[in-house]
Write a protein that binds this DNA or RNA. Sequence first.
DNA 1: CCACTTTGGCAACACTGTTGCAAAAGCGCA
DNA 2: TGCGCTTTTGCAACAGTGTTGCCAAAGTGG
Lengths: 353, 353
Amino acid sequence: MNRTDPGANLAALRDHNTAVVLGLLRCAGPAGASRAELATRAGLTPQAVSKITSRLRDTGLAAEAGRRASTGGKPATALRLVPGAAHAVGVHLDRDALTVTLVDLTGTETATRTAPLDFGAGAEAVLDAVAGAVTALLADHATGDVLGAGVAVPGPLDHRSGVLHRVTGFPRWDGFPLRDALGERLGLPVVVDKDTNAAALGLALRTPRATGSFAYLHLGTGLGAGLVLDGGVHRGPRTGAGEFGHQVVQVDGPLCACGDRGCLEALCLAAVTAGDTARAARLLGIGALNLVRLLDIDSVLLGGGAVLARPTAYVDGVRDVLGGAVPVDVVPEGARVVVGGAAELVLAPLFGV
Amino acid sequence: MNRTDPGANLAALRDHNTAVVLGLLRCAGPAGASRAELATRAGLTPQAVSKITSRLRDTGLAAEAGRRASTGGKPATALRLVPGAAHAVGVHLDRDALTVTLVDLTGTETATRTAPLDFGAGAEAVLDAVAGAVTALLADHATGDVLGAGVAVPGPLDHRSGVLHRVTGFPRWDGFPLRDALGERLGLPVVVDKDTNAAALGLALRTPRATGSFAYLHLGTGLGAGLVLDGGVHRGPRTGAGEFGHQVVQVDGPLCACGDRGCLEALCLAAVTAGDTARAARLLGIGALNLVRLLDIDSVLLGGGAVLARPTAYVDGVRDVLGGAVPVDVVPEGARVVVGGAAELVLAPLFGV
DNA sequence: CCACTTTGGCAACACTGTTGCAAAAGCGCA
DNA sequence: TGCGCTTTTGCAACAGTGTTGCCAAAGTGG
C-alpha cells in the first residue's frame, strides 16, 4: 500500500476546507453564493463557513455582493470571489507559436498575446521570447498580485520537476530544466505541464458543472489526451499518462514513427492528410471508445487543429462510434483552451485541484 | 469542478490520521514499527502518533510487541496490529464455483472453503449456498469481531448500491440487489464489487511495497482488468472501468460477442482456444502496452485461469511486447487473489483505501 | 400587528495536533 | 564507575479547528 497522502494536521484541515469553499465560490460565478448554500454544499456547519469566509474577506479573496431575494426568512447575503485579488500567467509553447495570457482569480482572460515562435531555435532564444512576451503583458496590465506562470508544452516531461524529456523532433530540448530556468528569468513561480494536461485542467475548472471524469482528445500535429479522473488530472507517476495516440488499434498495421505498428496516431493522421475526415473521425471514435470502456469516463471533449478545422464532422463521427454512450463535444474555447489551462496550473492549488 | 471530497471536520481529520497509522502498521507486518518511525512516515509529530496509537491500544486494534535494538539511545517500542482484533469474510462467486474465506485484520487467510456452484441457478439458490458456506465457516472458526462480508462477482454491477447489471449469459440476475439481499441473510454489512476490482484491491493492500499504480489483467472465461491509480482502485462513476477486453485492437476485425469488431477479448480467447499461447500472450501484451501508455502505470500483474495454466509463457509474451517498460508478473496468490481481495473490500476502509 | 422562517453572528465548548520540558533507557568514552 | 550523549516516549499546557447553544436581524404571510 502506498502512502501518497500522509497525515494531516489542523493547518491542512483549514487549508482543505478553505480550498473547498473557494472552489464553490468559483463555481457560483459572479452571482455568488450565500453562506448557508456553501455550508450545505461543502458539508460544513454554517458557523464553520462563516469563519472561513470571514478569513477570505480579510485576505481580500472574497467579498459580499448584495442581497438575495428572501425565501420566507431573512434574505441571504451573497458572497463572491474578488476577480482582481489574484492573477496568473499562462504560457503555451507550441511548435510554431507562442501564446501568453493573463487571467484573474476566476480564470477569466484579461489579456492575451500571440506571436510566431521557432521552438527548434533552442532554449535561450525561446526563453528570451517568453520572458519578453510575459514582461510586456504584465507591464501593459499591471496588477498587484501575480501568483506565478503556468507553461504548457507539447511532448513528454516531468511535471513535478519541470524538466523536459525528449520532445519529438526537437532534440536540443532534451533534459532542459524549463521550470527553474524560466522561473529565474521571470522572477515568478513556474509550473510546467503537457499541453493536453493543461487543457484538461482548464476544462475541469472552467466547465460550470464539470462531471467527475472526462477525456480531452487533442488531434493536431500529434494525437494525445488529457485525462481527468475523479475531478483531478491523472498524470501518472512520471507524467507519462495520456499517450492516447500510440495505442495499437490495428495489429500488424502500418509502421508508426514510434516504431510500433498500427498506432492510432499514424492511422488517424494518415486519414487527415488524405483528406478523409470521415475515416479520421471514425478512428478517433474507436480510440475514444476504448478509453471510455477502460476508464468509465463521463464525457469526451475534442480539440486541436484538425478537429477545430472541421468540428461537426469530427463530433458526428466520434458520436457515431460511441453510440450515445457518453456525450461528445468540441471544446468551446477552441485553441485557447491550452493557454487558459496553463494559467490554471497556477490557480488550481487554491481550489484544491 | 466537481466536489467529491467535501469539507472535513475534526472527526474526519482524526479518522484520516488513524487510518494512515493503521495502514503503516499493516505494512510493517508482525515486526511492527516504533512510534518515531510511524511519525516520520506519516508526517505527523511523535506526540500525535502517541495519542493515536494510545487510542488504538484502547480499542484493541494495536498492541506493543517488545523492544527494538538501540540505535544509540533509548530503544524503541515496537507496535503492531493485533491480527485477531477484527475479521472479514470474502466471497468469490464465479460461474461454476463458490469460494469463501475468513481473513484477520492483517489480511491473512484463516480458513477457506470451496464448493461447486451453478451461478445460473438463480438468486435464491445461490444466496442459500453462500449463506450456508459463510455460516459454516464462521461456526467452525468462531471469532468475535466480524466486520462484514465482501463479495466479488464477475460482470458489470454498481459498487455503491451493490446492484448487479447484466451479467453476461445469466439474464436471471439482471438488476438483482445482491448487497442488500445477502446483507439481510447474513446479518452482516456486505460490499459488492467486480472480481477484477477485488483482486486489484487485494494486491494493492497485500504487496509489501506496492507501487502507486498498477493493472491486474485477468484472462479466464473473459478478459478484464482491475486498475489501481494513485494507490486507490479506479472504478469509474458507474463501476464500469476495467473493460479491458473490449478495446478494439483490430479495426474491422472479427466480430465479438459484444457486437463490435476486433475486440481484444475475442482475438485473445480465440488464440487460447486454438492453443496458440504465444499469440494470446502477444495480444495480451499489446493490450497491456496500450494501457501502460495511456495511464503511465508502474507494473502489470497477470492472473486468471488461462494465465495460471501457463504462467511463464504469458509473462514472457507480455514482457516481450512491453519491452521492459514496466515489470510484469503473475499474481503470487494465483486464483486465491480474488477471494482474498473480496475480504479486503471490508477491511480497506480501516486503512483509508 | 404578530407568528414564523431563514440567515448569520457571538460566546463558550470539545477536540485535534503542537510545543515545551522532562524522564527513561541505552551507548560510548574517559 | 561515572558522565555526557542520543533517542524514544510521556505529561502538561497550548493554539486553533469546527461545533453547539443562543440570539439578533430581516424578511414573509396570516
